[in-house]
Amino acid sequence: MIREEIEKEIKNIFRREFEVENPGLDDNLREAYGFDSIDAIELLLEIEKMLGFELTQEEKKQAMEIRTINQICDYVEKIIRARVAAGK
């Protein structure tokens, strides 16, 4: 999955799940859209669905500090790279 695809899919999730149209890539999600911790859990579950595998507890904990769409894309890229490197 390349960066553009990840970005497109994350934006789709925001439109579908959180009714946020075209969020800015560096918008602070909490301040700009009232994104709370329960929304973060929903986002994590959607990311799992998108990737087709379950995230580890450690990976989930890392996600809870994310604040922007760009950071979400970095996070997803990092997970994909780690899984590829691990040969999974």
Binding site: S37, A40, I41, K60, K61, M64
Partner: peptide, 15 residues
């Protein structure tokens, strides 16, 4: 409380 239901603490609680 927000400190228990946000960030990594929330994942621990959910697990």
């Amino acid at each position: 409380t927000p400190s228990e239901m946000t960030g990594p603490a929330m994942i621990k609680n959910l697990e």
